[in-house]
Simulated assay, not measured.
Amino acid sequence: MREILGRRRRLRFRRKRGPVQLEAALHCAAEWEWPVLPGVGLKATPGTSQASRKSQRAQQSHQSESSAGPAGSGGDRGRACACPDADCVVPGAHPFDPGILAASTDERMVRWWWANRPTAPIILATGGRAPCALSLPAVAGARALSELDRMGMRLGPVIATPTRWSLLVAPYTLERLGELLFVKDRVPSSLRFHSEGGYVVLPPSETGPGQVRWERAPLVGSAAPWLPDVEAVVDALVEASTSAPDGGSRLTY
């Protein structure tokens, strides 16, 4: 009987736990001074049962934990983006209302946003004094991290979704990025850049493709995560891309 009662207490405790997005958003905004805002989120599609949605989320969670990215790329078939666009290509994973310019580090604003929408994805507005990012398709991202580790490249936090992996880097301007890319003979075509005016989704958000997680989490207790310079990361990615034995690219997908 004691064991059963203990188990019931644990189950009650688990049921009381609410969404963790607020805590994560507050940490990013107040501790790290990263400007954030809530993403548009997801809505249930007609005819999809709650049990079916739970099963789909459980399957995606298992795939993201047991695979280096490519699995689970089919998205959450039971839910769609909450924005008016029926054909949204980034379901749940973008700002809508408020817009990206509303991103803030103000604790009161962050609390108000997530008090009204507790499960909203956390959107980081990149650029300015905030981190920027380079992103790759999940398969290429996993290969890139392996290559960069082999090369001894020091990386900062890395965000993983079932479809894309994002490497956070120190802030850079579009002008500097243009100069950096101009001198390169070749840059992986799968590489995307997230600078001023852009954004990335932060863990532990849930979007259409699935759960957002840290592939390389920030160090616990650090005042703010260390971020590498964009030039060093681009140079390493270009080298990793062109170092395949057959002359092809290791970062294809």
Score class of each variant (00 low, 15 high):
W113Q: 10
V89T: 13
A115C: 12
I100M: 08
A232L: 10
R129W: 02
V233P: 09
V40G: 10
Q21L: 11
A24H: 15
W34N: 06
D246Y: 03
A133R: 05
Y253M: 07
E231Y: 02
T173S: 15
G18A: 12
F193T: 09
T45H: 14
A103P: 14
P188F: 05
L191M: 12
L167W: 10
T252P: 08
R213Q: 12
V36P: 14
L37K: 05
G6W: 00
S146G: 12
E215W: 11
F193A: 07
G75I: 02
V158I: 08
P46L: 00
K54I: 01
R9I: 02
R192K: 14
S249V: 00
A93G: 15
A115T: 13
T173D: 13
V169N: 11
A133H: 07
R9Q: 12
W113K: 11
L101P: 10
W114G: 09
D76E: 15
A29P: 15
V187W: 10
W113L: 03
P91G: 09
G75N: 12
P203R: 06
T207I: 10
G47L: 06
H194I: 01
P171I: 00
A236Q: 07
V200L: 04
P188G: 06
G128I: 00
G141V: 00
D185K: 13
A236I: 04
S241Q: 02
R14P: 02
A71N: 13
V200W: 11
G72Q: 05
A125I: 01
H27L: 13
A25W: 02
R216N: 07
L251E: 11
P118C: 08
R15H: 08
G92N: 10
P162G: 07
D87A: 12
M151I: 00
R250G: 02
A144M: 07
E23S: 15
A170Q: 13
P19K: 02
V158E: 11
L37Q: 08
A120W: 05
R117D: 08
F193Q: 12
L145K: 09
R129M: 00
E215N: 10
P84T: 06
V201R: 03
I4M: 07
H62L: 10
F96Q: 14
R150G: 01
P46K: 09
